[in-house]
Design a protein around this nucleic acid. Structure first.
Lengths: 119, 119
DNA sequence: TCCTTAGATTGACATTGGTCAATGTATTGA
DNA sequence: TCAATACATTGACCAATGTCAATCTAAGGA
């Protein structure tokens, strides 16, 4: 059985392609919606720590057990945050055996950072 | 009477000074809290549009009337969003006569973008 | 002085969002 | 086949958030 990957709510690669920096000109309403969804996914302490832990891991991959060790949150709550980050396109999930391994989607953070950076 | 500026909830200049990129190593919980507060302030379509409109203005300054023209939101709601952005340190307010002029705090967006940018 | 205008504040409301206990689903090992 | 393990999902609860109507404050102008 293959793992079916959830379609990201926000297509970050597209956002990267067509959006000018926030400060250049007034952005379109739907662009604002899309960017806000991405930022909302990041705007939580637990999720920022999850991203950071995943990124800092040896091969930029971490399983849920790595996270439950370091975060003082229940396993369902961590699963919830992981789902939010996968849906937003920041993390991808690979299931091997009983374990789920999460890794950063390359460039996903940078594209958001790029939109925020003025000039 | 002088205008008393609200203290930013998140000291962005400090965040810029002491924080490594998100991906380098696992960030400390209080860093995550601080960054999440900044991101939460940005993670709203109306507020992103406000920032964009202010930044795109001639001298990077806009009054509330400029915003009520372009956003389909009530004046109190726009005032609310402006307060959130000022409190978070992204906008500053200058009152001249009856009008309030808002402008971008230089570097505030970049410091958030810098933390998000990996490598 | 009074009215008008620009904007901030308050209060109320509905929606969203973070959290956990309980349960469900695969996968592995005995 | 059965038990244990790793993780996801569901449902419920409370807190936080976005929105607006109503009101308040302050600055000009007649």
């Amino acid at each position: 059985m293959t793992f079916t990957r959830t379609l990201p709510l926000t297509d970050i690669s597209q956002a990267d392609a067509c959006s000018s920096p926030l400060a250049r000109a007034a952005i379109a309403p739907d662009h604002a919606d899309s960017l806000a969804r991405s930022l909302k996914a990041l705007a939580d302490p637990a999720r920022l720590r999850i991203i950071s832990i995943v990124a800092a891991h040896a091969d930029a991959e971490a399983c849920v057990c790595d996270l439950t060790d370091q975060l003082t949150l229940s396993q369902p709550t961590i699963s919830h945050h992981l789902k939010v980050l996968v849906d937003a396109g920041f993390l991808s999930r690979a299931k091997r055996g009983t374990w789920s391994y999460y890794s950063l989607v390359p460039g996903s953070l940078d594209s958001v950072a790029g939109v925020l950076a003025a000039v």
